[in-house]
């Protein structure tokens, strides 16, 4: 009797310690993801994600998901492979959004006076949820790369349209046709971001006129598959348990 109750209390104690350990580990991991994923997005997507008047139909929906699939694919690999947790992609995109919310609010709005709507970030969460759900249902990285990767990129534009459609309303401004987003970008002076730097609506996809958006989404979806595979492999290299196994 005595020994059994000791065993129970000991198991409870271990569970408690293990749970504490969970959170001790979780918090620094989240902070590292916020910092590194966010920095990588600043360096690669940059202005397309910073500014309202850069979120066009062609480049923005290609560049953002293709650069954004990096951490979700890599972390998803590690969490699924070693812990059977289908949450890697969602964790990353939530961290990214938190990091962005902090910089946009403090650095862009409070410190440098840009209105929040001019620097609203895009969301990658819908695509990341799909990536995690597909992995959970299929239990296969191969299927996730193809189906999940394509969905991650393809849903980017439609999922963000609810946020950005209001800014695409036409305005007659100083005698020319502009969107509210263009007017905002013009009004709030950015000394370091002149108008000609905007890489928007440029390139061969223009020829397809109104089909530019679906075509961009399709391009992004196709390219997202090999990129998912690449980042998944990088995730494999980094999520080695070689060091833990020694203990």
């Amino acid at each position: 009797m005595v020994s059994q109750s000791t065993a129970i209390s000991r198991a409870a104690e271990i569970a408690k310690i293990s749970r504490t350990f969970d959170f001790i580990l979780l918090i620094p991991i989240l902070l590292v993801i916020i910092g590194t994923y966010h920095l990588s997005m600043i360096l690669t997507v940059g202005d397309w994600d910073f500014w309202l008047d850069w979120k066009d139909r062609q480049w923005w929906p290609i560049v953002t998901p293709l650069m954004g699939i990096s951490f979700p694919a890599a972390i998803q690999y590690g969490l699924w492979k070693h812990l059977r947790l289908p949450i890697g992609a969602t964790v990353c995109t939530v961290c990214l959004l938190l990091g962005m919310a902090i910089t946009r609010w403090f650095a862009y709005h409070l410190w440098t006076n840009y209105p929040i709507n001019l620097v609203l970030p895009a969301t990658l969460i819908p695509g990341a949820l799909l990536l995690d759900f597909v992995l959970l249902t299929s239990r296969s990285f191969f299927v996730t790369a193809i189906l999940g990767g394509m969905l991650f990129a393809a849903v980017f534009y439609p999922a963000n349209w609810a946020i950005f459609a209001p800014f695409h309303q036409p305005v007659e401004y100083n005698g020319s046709l502009m969107t509210l987003a263009d007017v905002s970008g013009y009004s709030y002076i950015r000394p370091g971001v002149p108008e000609y730097l905007r890489i928007i609506e440029r390139g061969v996809l223009r020829t397809y006129d109104t089909y530019a958006t679906p075509l961009s989404a399709f391009c992004a979806a196709v390219l997202a598959v090999p990129l998912y595979a690449l980042w998944s492999y990088i995730g494999k290299l980094f999520s080695t348990t070689r060091f833990i196994d020694k203990f």
């Binding site: 850069w54 139909r57 609810a162 459609a165 695409h168 036409p170 969107t179 263009d182 609506e201």
Partner: peptide, 18 residues
């Protein structure tokens, strides 16, 4: 649903001008 809703609410949307 969110896409269709936004599309119906802002039917006159135009691409960014440059």
């Amino acid at each position: 649903a969110s896409f269709v809703h936004a599309d119906q609410k802002y039917p006159e949307s135009i691409p960014l001008q440059t």
